[in-house]
Amino acid sequence: MSCFETFTGYALRSIGIGERLLPKTDFTLCDQFVLIGSGMIWNVYFAVVALSLGFFFAVALALGRSSDNPIARIPSRVFIFVIRGSPLFIQFFLIYEFFVMIPKMGWDINLGFIEITVETRWLTKAWLGALITLFLNTAGYTANIFYGALQSIPKGDIEAAYAIGMSKRQVFWRISFPTMLRLAWPSYTNEAIFLFHATALVFFSSFPAWRQEGDALYYASYFADKTFNPFVPYPIIALYFISFTLLIILGFGWVDKRLNRHIAPNK
């Protein structure tokens, strides 16, 4: 099998497109690179969706945490504390156990042009269940970062905004929110990296892999198990993660520049 054939057969194997069976013998470097790369689709999917949805929930939680109203403040505070205080794998375990207990049901939802069935059994699948766990996890950590940033906004800025007659809403959207993002961005970048790395845990210890469709670490340990040699697949997956982490750093760095573009450079 040439490397091109391997690519067409396995590049999308992790999402069920391509060859049905995994290679079993004579593993080439090409096999390992392609399949582990195919698994990265899952890692990127988890990271992108969890981070983008988690961002909004985190803003809401951070506002709740700094609110004067105890009904908003106390639950946000407890949520952030529990998420930040417990290891992710315990969160995976508990949430999976919880989802498994939910009775299997389905509802038909009519969207006008198409009717879809929403089923509770999706919750025990990684694509939804693990995603929800990662979403809650990143929301908790990010909320804490945003909360800290909200507390550090110079009081004078906000007072000045009120003084020129801005409404509460305007103050939030034009002053507090952008300043919060600007202050929180370096820590938020770290959180994005940690979350991306945490996606490697999904199939390693919590959610089951269906039809041998798993993430990059699933395939890397598959090869390590079949070849009995950890020194090839694990460095390959490390290489993939380093490259994607660099992309995150570049992307977040670009946003950081934009957030700070009104501030004179330090040097």
Partner: peptide, 17 residues
Amino acid sequence: SMVRGVPDIIFFLFVPI
């Protein structure tokens, strides 16, 4: 940058050996 780029779990799977 290298070590921060690799998930700790993967690092531990082959570096100690």
